[in-house]
Amino acid sequence: MEKTGIPGKAVKRPVLRKAMTHPYLVLAFRIYIGSLFVYASMYKINYASEFAETIASYQLVPYWAVNLLALVMPWMELICGLFLVIGFRTKSAAATIAGLLALFSAAVAISLFRDLPIGCGCFHALGEQMSWKTLLRDLVWLGMAVHVYLFDSALQVEKRFALAIRDI
């Protein structure tokens, strides 16, 4: 990982990089994103019809897929969130969540462009009106998820397992 540039900066970069990629930072992101999604999925699972309404309000998904999506997506959020929190299959979970977030971001962006007066629907049906803040928030989360995907290493359940079986 060599970087060209001013020698002075070259010294700083590794430090910055190290800070950026510190396992604890990644861990914090991971746990945050994970618990966020677990929390977010709770309402949607409980009030599936309202979530279906929310999905419908974006006017992106065809009518026959709305309910399906309303049923499956919250559970995906829950599972991936749990995985992230626990530290199991973090890479796959992070990738899934990043994908979902990308999806949400795109939907929000489209809706914003369409000027649809709808709520985000991320947490509950009567959430605040969608705005660019929502999009930004989603993008930040996406960034975190990607970060987790790339750099997660600490507190993984599987790490212990890996250590154990390395002996074999």
């Binding site: 929390y39 749990l82 993984q156 212990r160």
Partner: peptide, 21 residues
């Protein structure tokens, strides 16, 4: 490692239980 993960999970469950109840 595992234990800390489980603790987190437990707390989450508690939270959601509290949330719903």
């Amino acid at each position: 490692m595992l234990r800390s993960a489980l603790i987190i999970l437990f707390m989450l469950l508690l939270g959601s239980a509290a949330y719903s109840c």
